[in-house]
Computed example of a mutant assay.
Amino acid sequence: MIDKTIASYFIENYGNDPILIKAPGRINLIGEHTDYNEGLVLPASIEKGIYFAVSNNNDDTIRIETFLTQPEKIEFKLNGNHEKFESFWGNYFKAIIEILVAKNYPIKGIDCVFGGDIPIGSGLSSSAALCCGFIYAVTKISGQDILREEIALIAQEAEHKIGLNCGLMDQYAVLFGKKGNAFFLDCKDLSHNYIPINLEGFSWVLVNSNIKHNLAVDSEYNKRRISCENIVKKVQKYRPEITSLRDVTLEDVKKVSNVADATDCKRAKYVIEENDRVRKMIKALTNGDAQEVGNVLRQGHWAMSTQYEITTSELDALVKIGENLDGVLGSRMMGGGFGGCTINLMLTEKLDASIKSMLKQYKEQTGIDAEYYHLAIDDGVKVFE
């Protein structure tokens, strides 16, 4: 188990018994690219995660080692100076420390070893787990409790500092997740509640296309955010009270279509309709209607493919394969886009055969070996015993 490996390595190399923090990855059942439009989302935290072994040290230094990709170590001085590093994840920690210092949080020197079992770049929000877990760990070591809502905002600010203008869905899902439940979040006022997932006889499976994405580098994410903002500006000319796509209607988009870019209109329609798919998914889960859950998944995928244009040919192939398997009720790409995984609802009694057939056909069509992961819905960030 990765948690035991990390804890044992910490004890061997740093001589202390660490506090062990677990920050889960997250799935999103439905509600893609709606969060930064003050829309509706339905994520859930999962069993896979990132583990942080942390302890105080007597230096004015934060030392961090990882097993996440390859063994690497970086150091930060609490006076703001740090040694050069090459790791992509070092940028997240640098941003977090700078934010905490700017906010006058009392930070102590700490030693930290982390690693996990979230596949990087697969749409499971490893970056949110990284940021939220590390901030939570720092607060535990420093003895300065920070509300989870504040941790979410700091983690979001860190992502913004390194170039990804994300919303708050990932952070809230990672921090507030509850075992056995989806997490309904209204990104306009951050109100939330839990939706029990009671689909007996069905299983959630993630299939990794092994097409990697890096949203912080790929500007396509930010281009779509700009498209949404462009439509809001057009609508505001006759509805000045509008502040986001959340309150824009399809009729509004139709009214401005003669003066707005056609691509911007298409993307805005996707977001408005995706909010409605979140409502449909909540109703389907509440009613235990697995068939409708599958329908909403499929509808969401093809809208991402044709309207928001954030899927890939490989992800489309996975969904099409699933549509022709009687053990798969529905599939869709999950995450920011341009790679990663599909989330699939499958009949448990046909699970093994469905997975085997899906992976075989995907290999035949693309030449790529896909991977799969059984999903278990788990709790949010916590001290791990």
Results as ranks from 00 to 15, higher is better:
Gly90Pro: 07
Arg298Asp: 14
Asp170Ala: 02
Asp247Asn: 14
Lys320Trp: 13
Thr5Leu: 13
Leu250Arg: 15
Ser227Met: 09
Cys228Met: 08
Glu149Arg: 06
Gln70Lys: 09
Ala268Ser: 14
Ala317Ile: 12
Ile21Lys: 02
Asn37Cys: 10
Asp352Pro: 01
Gly90Ser: 12
Val271Ile: 12
Tyr51Thr: 02
Val235Ala: 14
Asn324Gln: 09
Ile96Ser: 02
Asn324Val: 02
Gly322Trp: 15
Lys178Gln: 10
Arg239Gln: 15
Ala23Met: 03
Asp117Ala: 13
Pro43Lys: 12
Thr5Asp: 13
Ile272Gly: 14
Ile97Val: 07
Gly109Asn: 00
Leu359Asp: 03
Gln291Pro: 04
Asn208Asp: 15
Cys187Pro: 13
Thr312Val: 10
Met304Arg: 07
Asp369Phe: 02
Lys382Gln: 10
Met346Arg: 06
Asp17Met: 09
Lys254Tyr: 15
Ser257Ile: 08
Ser45Glu: 03
Arg63Ala: 00
Lys223Phe: 06
Asn222Val: 05
Gly288Lys: 14
Leu42Phe: 13
Val253Ala: 10
Ala268Ile: 12
Gly335Asn: 07
Asp3Asn: 12
Leu185Val: 11
Asp247Val: 10
Phe183Ile: 01
Gly123Phe: 07
Phe93Ser: 02
Tyr172Gln: 06
Val174Ile: 09
Gln156Tyr: 10
Glu12Trp: 06
Thr249Lys: 09
Tyr362Asp: 07
Lys84Val: 04
Gly336Met: 09
Gly177Cys: 10
Ile321Ser: 15
Leu375Met: 09
Ile377Phe: 08
Ser203Asp: 11
Ile226Tyr: 09
